[in-house]
């Protein structure tokens, strides 16, 4: 139904709106995914450090 990639990207003249909306959603979900993955990595790394140095972990608190 589209006449090549250019026509698809033009979105019948609404390119800015359609791609602006889809782009922001993609960006938002991507960013959320990255942030959560980073948080998970940090927590796991912290716990692994703690289990290696139990005494230090107890003193330093959370």
């Amino acid at each position: 139904m589209w006449d090549g990639i250019g026509d698809f990207l033009a979105m019948g003249g609404y390119a800015l709106y359609v791609w602006g909306a889809f782009g922001m959603v993609a960006l938002g979900l991507l960013l959320e995914g990255i942030l959560v993955a980073r948080r998970r990595r940090q927590v796991r790394a912290r716990l692994q450090r703690q289990s290696r140095r139990p005494a230090a972990a107890r003193n330093q608190g959370e």
Binding site: Q48, S51, E62
Partner: peptide, 11 residues
């Protein structure tokens, strides 16, 4: 963080 399971899970 201080519990056994959490530290095992992290590893």
């Amino acid at each position: 963080a201080r519990t056994e399971w959490a530290q095992a899970a992290a590893a």
